[in-house]
Nucleic acid binder design. Structure first.
Lengths: 201, 201, 201, 201
DNA sequence: AATGAATGAGCATTCATTCAT
DNA sequence: GATGAATGAATGCTCATTCAT
């Protein structure tokens, strides 16, 4: 790939890293590969990022940022009269869609050992939490409307998140039994979740 | 560790690999480390396994075998009068427990990119399926008893499996927000699943 | 460290280099480290020094200058009636003290391979020689007073310098056997030297 | 250089490392340079030595071993009626000669920061001490014969060693003023030392 | 007077694997 | 059945230096 004159090198590096992240795991993305894929030396990366960790973290941050915006946009796009349950549905589907369409982000955001992240200040996790908070807020509203069972909103969001993550990660890892249609499975999962949280009459 | 005279080297290698798998990820387990931890040369592993992939696959197979036996034992241990729902509950908890207690197996069974797996004949996945089949059978019985909603048993098992996997993998990766108690979250998940699958009265 | 507005950058660089030289060896002091420790870019050093060699040489020069002044001051501080032997003693102790208290200067002045120095004109060694000359002058006076044996003053100074250097360099490199007290060893050395140069009665 | 078929690779590596040590400092000798100078890959070295430190240490050990043997041989070569003072003289000259003729050994034995060595068990320093002990023993005999002043033999050996080291290291670093003849300086040093330790009549 | 951007060479180390024995 | 010896490729990272601005 030739050098892109218009784009700053920092942005190019991030883009290249993302692209490589799809094909190879975090472990297999190397500074050299990233650099050479955009026609630069590995050393140049170190001018823009302190080290590999920082580069990956910049990507994680970007991922959470994008997911947040995507979530917001999806909810804003709902019709005025959408019920809180619709919003929950939208939020769930957005999360799944985001994961499947941005595997490179999803992997580093949710499928990577966080031990290495421990070194980073908690402040870095703010963006991560914003997404949980958004989910909790939506759940909270559905709760107030008497539509879903009375549970701690944040915990409930974590529960739903974990469940969806199981699906997304297995799809991304091609670990779903070939006999199952991915979409059918997803609908089944969403169905179970919704049935599991709504107030039974 | 000294050489174990009684145990075949093949078995020793698998044991050592497993032990290392707990501490380090799949990527970080090397032939050298495995071999030297049991007092042998890396080369000697190649006498027993074609390459690293084959070694890992032998472990995956063993993992599925163990999970299957554990599942069976758990169900057998249930009281005579246990309801089909109890069996479903037992099956779910056994899966989670197995994952948390055998992270080394769980990681390679369910948390590893399957690109390399592609090379292996589908026949290798037989053991994987046996566990799904067991779940499907149990679900099927609950269905016949009119206790759970009418859904394709195998798909339903996949759904439940994916949901539980989301929890297990996040716990293993320390990705659960520190504000949540792991057990509380698990109970919430099991609760949602059960509520989601049972027949509404 | 914030930029010091009052001090010229050249001086700041030298100060920073010195400071780093204490902790790390010559080899481990890098342009980047020097520059970043005073809040500048590595590149900016090149405006003030042709290259790393020149920077180190400027420091060496400064070191010799300082040692010379310290020597002069020490002798000037001696009482009027001090004997030539007292001056020799003062000169020796000053040299040792200077080395132990200014390891960063001492290392580059006396403990560094001079291959790189070869490129520099002999003229650069003038300051080095001034210190030898001072020693020779003092020895000469003691000789005229019939206190020390008749030897070429400059050679004698070199002899004494080499001997003291052995001690200083070993102390700085932590190469003195832990069973020996540094001061006891120094006094023993000074004692042998003095006994070795004085005229026997 | 072609591969030497007769010699074990381990020995070849040590020889090559030594050779490079002369031209470049410890810091500048790299595994790559060593390996490629004998026609092997850097990796091969790691088969024979755990890491660079261990390689350097093997060399240090060898150096001390050689110095010890050289010292013994030199003393054994003295005539039957040699006086203890002759033995001291032999010991001193042997040390200096060894240093000048084996700069690669001398550098790592006596001219290198010992911080990195700290990690190594004290047992590794046995060979270092053997040489000090030999010197102390010789001094002790001279003392019993009433030829040298009454001082702690080991401390005295350290004193003499430090003094000679000053000379050797400066010669090796080309730090001796070009106006001095190296041999003349050495004789002057030996003269001062001998005059400084003998019993004055 | 100083920076931003980039490079090429280098380093110690680790890895999976091979081959002859 | 297992080892000794060796390799080629790769990794994250640091360094002195250059050049245009």
């Amino acid at each position: 790939m030739a050098k892109n004159e218009k784009e700053g090198l920092r942005a190019q590096i991030l883009r290249a890293a993302r692209k490589l992240l799809i094909k190879e795991g975090v472990k297999d993305v190397s500074m050299r590969k990233i650099a050479s894929s955009i026609g630069y030396t590995a050393t140049s990366i170190y001018y823009h990022f302190k080290n590999k960790d920082e580069l990956i973290h910049a990507l994680i941050d970007e991922g959470h940022e994008r997911l947040y915006r995507t979530n917001q946009a999806a909810i804003a796009a709902l019709p005025e009269d959408a019920s809180p349950l619709d919003r929950i549905d939208s939020n769930m589907r957005t999360f799944v869609k985001f994961g499947l369409e941005n595997p490179e982000f999803y992997e580093i955001m949710y499928m990577t050992q966080s031990e290495e992240f421990a070194k980073y200040p908690k402040e870095n996790f703010r963006k991560t939490r914003r997404n949980i908070d958004l989910g909790a807020q939506i759940y909270s509203e559905a709760q107030k409307a008497g539509l879903v069972r009375d549970r701690e909103p944040r915990l409930s969001t974590a529960t739903i998140g974990a469940m969806l993550h199981g699906y997304v990660s297995w799809v991304l890892m091609h670990r779903i039994d070939t006999r199952f249609d991915h979409n059918k499975l997803l609908e089944d999962i969403l169905d179970v979740i919704k049935n599991g949280i709504v107030v039974k009459q």
